[in-house]
């Protein structure tokens, strides 16, 4: 048997033949760049998370093992910020899924002006995030905001209302601005899935006497699962990590009403210049995001 076994040299030559070597050589520059700009910073930030590294105390940088992680996970403010992040994510993702499904159902129909409506619906997605934040800051302003002006003119409110300054309204209002920006992309993703549903299914269901609602529940919804899963994973990750609107609209306030995890990472890293705890928080957020995405894929993926 051993006499028939090819030599190691032959097996290596077979495995790393000319084509494989050439391919390796061609992707080497890209891999090098990726290693430098992506892999190294990621690993370095993991390394940093084990130190009490504060930029303003350059002479005291002790190695603290997992102390930063323990400190973060036992910090009351961090736990509260996790609850706020979950609340923001839940209300945003549910709203995005519902509104995007309705829009994609509308755009899936043939009617006069459909292209114009499609273009209009895409506008929020095309607006830069910072511009979106500033726009909503103006809308929500308690003194001169468009929302107060509109509601007063409609006779819904008697005097101007405090919006972002009211801690009960802060997260829902930021979620609203986030949903407005994210819905177009979600609608397109769901629409693409909707377009791939074979028309024969609907014709057969019609022949069997299924009405519109039955066709939607038994054909459209189950067929949309791949699109829903994509939107669910993408928007959940976006919502959990979202920072821009919290920075532009409230800076974590009033009090700690919009102090979410991404905001705490910013404060810890760039205001307090505590790179050790900032890195540890980022790793916790990344692990949670990956775990959630994995759970969604596992639970929904089986049924597709």
């Amino acid at each position: 048997m051993s006499e028939n076994k090819p030599s190691l040299k032959y097996r290596l030559a077979l495995r790393f033949n000319y084509e494989a070597r050439s391919a390796g050589l061609f992707i080497l520059p890209v891999m090098t760049v990726l290693a430098l700009v992506a892999v190294f910073p990621i690993l370095y930030s993991l390394y940093t998370s084990f130190f009490k590294l504060k930029l303003t105390r350059p002479h005291q940088v002790p190695f603290v093992w997992f102390d930063n992680y323990v400190e973060i996970l036992t910090d009351e403010l961090f736990i509260e910020s996790v609850y706020r992040t979950v609340s923001f994510t839940l209300m945003s993702v549910v709203a995005i899924l519902l509104i995007a499904t309705m829009i994609s159902l509308l755009l899936n129909e043939t009617f006069r002006g459909r292209r114009f409506v499609s273009a209009m619906i895409l506008i929020p997605w095309a607006i830069p995030t910072v511009a979106n934040g500033l726009l909503w800051k103006w809308i929500y302003d308690s003194g001169y905001g468009a929302l107060n002006g509109l509601l007063k003119q409609l006779g819904i409110i008697e005097k101007y209302t405090v919006w972002l300054g009211d801690p009960d309204k802060t997260i829902p209002l930021i979620a609203n601005a986030f949903v407005w920006k994210e819905v177009p992309l979600a609608a397109i993703l769901i629409l693409v899935t909707m377009k791939s549903i074979p028309a024969d299914l609907y014709r057969a269901a019609k022949v069997d006497g299924a009405n519109v609602i039955q066709r939607f529940v038994h054909i459209t919804l189950p067929s949309l699962k791949p699109g829903f899963m994509l939107v669910l994973i993408y928007e959940t990750m976006m919502a959990i990590r979202h920072f821009d609107l919290f920075f532009l609209l409230t800076e974590g306030g009033p009090a700690d009403a919009s102090h979410v995890v991404s905001w705490q990472i910013y404060v810890e890293t760039f205001r307090n210049l505590s790179f050790g705890t900032g890195s540890a928080m980022s790793y916790i957020l990344a692990i949670v995001t990956f775990a959630l995405a994995y759970a969604i894929i596992k639970s929904l993926g089986k049924r597709i």
Partner: peptide, 8 residues
């Protein structure tokens, strides 16, 4: 003083 002072 306006209750909105915390956002001004």
């Amino acid at each position: 003083v306006s209750p909105a002072c915390v956002e001004i």
